[in-house]
């Protein structure tokens, strides 16, 4: 049944993609041709439009995910979704998995877009992949400076990419589900916004508290020509207090010298963020089983 729920969502997504994909493709193609052949003004305009389109692609798909979550579960379509012979858990996982597939599709489209935009100037110079090669060389030197392997960097980026989606999904699924629940039944669409404000406030406070109470930090230390990153058990606040709050305009080298060769950044807020994702997962799944449609 989960597979069928995902297929149902994907059909709806494909319908939306029918509009998004051709428009985005057209933007990229016009940028590639007009800027690629150095046409003044229109070339720049096409390039900027394609750049904006690329930047908006992933946020747009995340927003579509929010709209779809609300529509399928809490608008009149909820009367169908909640009476299908599937469990609340399957309903939740269906939205989570289909959302992640759409996010992955949008990411791939955006990456392809970035590659196309990098190629635009190279076409006129007869060096199509020049900028892409320069980009990868730049990445290589940054990784060498940070003393990180390509594999570790790829894993880190994949993790960040996944956490962005999971935290977004955790936030909107919780806000909509709780906001459309019985407690906020008289507030219409205002319910999810109120829950969003409450959750944001709690997350902010928890972030500050976690900085004070969770002894986990990212240590950035000088190592030869580059720097070394390491996760350590300890309060970043301790070093901050030792260093004092005198000068906020310090250079990186001055900061390192003052910190005794390293600087700690507190990771408590990241721990809180991950805890929120776990909390939202169990809370929202449970609430979906006790729906109160209006």
């Amino acid at each position: 049944m989960l597979r069928k729920l995902i297929a149902l969502d994907m059909r709806a997504f494909a319908r939306q993609l029918q509009w998004i994909a051709p428009i985005y493709g057209l933007l990229l193609l016009s940028a590639l041709l007009l800027r690629g052949f150095n046409l003044p003004v229109v070339g720049v305009v096409a390039y900027v439009l394609a750049l904006i389109g690329t930047a908006l692609l992933i946020p747009a798909v995340l927003v579509l995910g929010i709209v779809r979550y609300y529509r399928h579960l809490y608008s009149h379509q909820g009367y169908l979704t909640h009476t299908l012979p599937v469990t609340a858990s399957q309903r939740y996982h269906g939205k989570l998995i289909s959302g992640s597939i759409m996010y992955a599709a949008a990411t791939l489209m955006a990456l392809a877009g970035v590659a196309v935009l990098m190629m635009t100037k190279g076409i006129a110079r007869g060096d199509v992949f020049g900028k892409i090669l320069v980009f990868f060389r730049g990445v290589e030197s940054i990784l060498a400076y940070l003393n990180i392997s390509s594999f570790a960097a790829a894993l880190f980026l994949l993790g960040v990419w996944l956490v962005i989606f999971l935290s977004t999904f955790a936030l909107y699924s919780l806000c909509i589900t709780a906001g459309m629940g019985r407690l906020f039944s008289r507030m219409g669409m205002g319910g999810p916004f109120i829950v969003y404000l409450l959750v944001t406030l709690i997350n902010q406070v928890a972030g500050v508290v976690s900085f004070l109470l969770i002894p986990l930090s990212l240590r950035i230390a000088v190592a030869g020509d580059g720097i070394r990153l390491k996760i350590v058990v300890g309060f970043a606040l301790r070093q901050l207090l030792e260093m004092g709050f005198k000068n906020q305009q310090m250079t990186f080298d001055e900061l390192m010298t003052l910190g005794g060769g390293y600087v700690d950044f507190g990771l408590g807020s990241i721990v809180i963020g991950l805890a929120f994702i776990v909390f939202s997962y169990f809370f929202t799944k449970r609430q979906l089983a006790k729906v109160n449609l209006r």
């Binding site: 909820g78 009367y79 909640h82 009476t83 019985r182 729906v291 109160n292 449609l293």
Partner: peptide, 9 residues
Amino acid sequence: IKLVMGLLQ
């Protein structure tokens, strides 16, 4: 009817 269908608790 919504209570019977589980659409209200």
